[in-house]
């Protein structure tokens, strides 16, 4: 019985966050757009068949302008741009979400350990991170992909590894001022273990900047994946990806601008939505702004 009561309490807490988020119109708009794109990604096969529309070449229909038959027109191989944008959402959104999740998980762990314990632990972790950071992110990702071979999973890990030091730094810096607060000492005086203090007291207090950083990074990751695909180290053709669609459309953009407009719009819309949503979520998560 009490168990259900605690469940009820949790739900009502989520409920109040949702209530506050709902007041923020731009955040709700961002969330809606994200939901639409996620739904598109999930039901991509229903919306447009992958093998017949997204990847099958058809020279007869190459470079058709947008119209009834092809909503967004066709590319230089006669592939339907709409179908390719729809299927590209799968790659882009999952790369964005997964790399950032990996980076937040590892960066959060390392950053909060470094910030909380300080001293030699902090030094060792942060010097390793500095070493990784001293290699340019693109170069690091490239070398990892080159070593592991191209492919979605390898790309994910390569990008995550290049992002972890940044997250570690941000999270350490938001953890540091929290560590010296009285309530952490009070928690210690109650016999709370270090692990529990980090998870229950410090990270929730530092969550705002982490969320903002994470949402910013999602759009960054989508762009980075596009950049890597552009130089052939990311998603391999013929699999559609927004970034690679953009780069292959460069040659035709003077005569067929719709080839760059639609994938470009997709990237901008998704990136913007994540930023707006993250901003609203930060406000909603902070109970101090509650009234």
């Amino acid at each position: 019985m009490n168990n259900s009561e605690s469940k009820y309490k949790k739900r009502s807490q989520l409920g109040s966050i949702w209530k506050r988020l709902r007041k923020n119109k731009t955040a709700v708009a961002g969330l809606c757009v994200i939901c639409i794109f996620v739904l598109i990604a999930i039901f991509a096969d229903v919306i447009a068949d992958y093998s017949t529309m997204a990847i099958r070449m058809n020279a007869a229909e190459a470079l058709q302008p947008p119209g009834v038959g092809h909503l967004f027109g066709t590319d230089e191989y006669g592939r339907d741009v709409f179908a390719r944008v729809v299927h590209g959402s799968r790659v882009s959104i999952s790369i964005g979400l997964l790399t950032v999740s990996i980076a937040v998980a590892f960066g959060g762990l390392l950053g909060s350990i470094a910030g909380y314990f300080g001293g030699p632990v902090d030094n060792i972790i942060m010097r390793i991170m500095d070493t990784v950071m001293s290699i340019p992110a693109v170069l690091l990702t490239l070398s990892i992909v080159a070593a592991l071979g191209p492919g979605m999973v390898n790309l994910l890990w390569a990008m995550a590894i290049a992002t972890i030091p940044g997250f570690t730094r941000v999270i350490r810096s938001v953890v540091l001022p929290t560590v010296n607060q009285d309530f952490v000492e009070a928690a210690k005086a109650c016999g709370t273990s270090n692990r529990r203090i980090i998870l229950r007291h410090i990270i929730p207090n530092a969550i705002g900047p982490i969320i903002v950083q994470a949402t910013m990074a999602i759009s960054g990751m989508i762009l980075a994946a596009a950049a890597l695909s552009f130089i052939g180290m990311g998603i391999q053709p013929p699999r559609p990806e927004w970034g690679s669609m953009l780069s292959s459309a460069r040659e035709y953009m003077m005569n067929s601008p719709y080839l760059v407009v639609f994938p470009g719009l997709a990237i901008v819309t998704v990136a913007l939505s994540f930023n707006l949503f993250g901003d609203g979520l930060r406000d909603a998560l902070d109970p101090r702004l509650k009234n």
Binding site: D182, F183, E185, A186, A187, R200, P204, N205, I207
Partner: peptide, 10 residues
Amino acid sequence: DPMTSLNPVL
């Protein structure tokens, strides 16, 4: 200081 010895987010 009771103002700072309680965790603001719990």
